[in-house]
Amino acid sequence: MQLIACPWCGEREEIEFHYGGEAHIAYPEDPYALDDEQWAQYVFFRDNPKGPFAERWVHSAGCRRWFNALRDTVTHEFLTVYGIGAERPSHTSTAPAAPRAKGQEASR
């Protein structure tokens, strides 16, 4: 089973997590200013890249916290995990950057 490194709990089995879709989709500053097409873009349209993709994940069976992850959609490899309010890290290579927890020690 694939392991996912929760920023708080370290590596856990993927069944402890749930997926939350693409990260960094900000709620429109003024929703009333959007026309139907713009609203549809906000609600329904998402990127679908082949390669690194910024996603939201939640450690639902553990600490129950949301975090962001950069995942390679080709290899399913988690390139890095980062805070829910943090900027998307620049990441182009596929070298693993996810924090490796020693045993069950927290990664921070």
Partner: peptide, 15 residues
């Protein structure tokens, strides 16, 4: 649950 990974006082919410 090896003591090197989870010593006394470890607290893990899991399945």
């Amino acid at each position: 649950l090896d003591p090197r990974a989870t010593p006394v006082g470890s607290c893990l919410t899991t399945l």
